[in-house]
Design a protein around this nucleic acid. Structure first.
Lengths: 146, 146
DNA sequence: ATCCAGTATTAGACATAATCTAATCACCGT
DNA sequence: ACGGTGATTAGATTATGTCTAATACTGGAT
């Protein structure tokens, strides 16, 4: 039987145990983000959150997303188009695969990332904190469309 | 004796041999971009180009940058802040090291990138065209500043 | 050299994403 | 209930990039 990675604790669950005031608005944002393989724009998060909490403002969504990113609970990804995307899966290490044409984005778990090394002479005194890997390509739909 | 990679042909040089009308404006943009380890925003390119050709318009700079990216002569990088950055070093394969705090960006040549493999089950039918690797960390100045 | 057709450039209007501001509101401990 | 801290809000503002329609330039044909 295939071994499954244990379901990672949800974003909301992780937030509960932090010293971080959990308001209705913040919960709505966290719930909008939750789920695997989700890479929403701030605007999409706002739409989803507003479905539950109609009076939530855009500013709050932006505030909360910025704080979640600062807490390390979501990853902010400067993406293909102009809008940033937010990846709630900050716990399980993973990378991304993006369509160069339509911007479609998937989570992937490539082999070999643990071998990525920056030669000492190229560290420029930086304190390294992580690596992001993005595979670029054409998704089946876009490949077909030319 | 250390083997040096031969100095890559300049962006301008590469452009000359293409079937691509080389106007004064386009030359100014190419010259603004040229040089290693340069990762300018469109606005910075415009400032530099305007130093040589004061009447060049913002629209032209954006047009030319978009075309150069489409030609594969510069890499357009969705970056830290809101503004895209343009990397003229599209010939020599390389990756990047970015400061999470101030956004400083350096070219690097990490070991192990040729071992990066996407398991077949995670390709989702994509036709792969490349990989971008970005090391994240804190530059010496920002590390010092806390 | 001149003309022409096609292409490049331009100023400024427009669109979009994100941030800022100042006012209001909610929660918590007393 | 009161006051203070911090969260939320609407709307204005900024930043970045794109579009449009008019004009200027380029390179080839003559």
């Amino acid at each position: 039987m295939e071994r499954r990675t244990p379901a990672p604790e949800s974003l909301l669950g992780r937030l509960r145990r932090r010293d971080w005031t959990l308001t209705a608005q913040r919960r709505a944002v966290a719930e909008a983000l939750d789920g695997a393989h989700v890479h929403l724009t701030a605007d999409a998060v706002h739409r989803r959150a507003a479905a539950r909490l109609p009076e939530i403002s855009r500013a709050t969504v932006y505030n909360v997303l910025r704080e979640l990113a600062a807490l390390g609970e979501v990853r902010e990804m400067g993406g293909e188009g102009r809008a940033k995307r937010y990846d709630p899966n900050a716990v399980e290490p993973h990378h991304h695969l993006r369509c160069e044409r339509c911007g479609a984005l998937r989570d992937v778990h490539p082999h070999g990332t643990n071998r990525l090394r920056l030669p000492p002479g190229e560290r420029y005194g930086f304190a390294l904190r992580g690596v992001d890997v993005v595979f670029r390509g054409l998704c089946p739909d876009c490949a077909r469309a030319g």
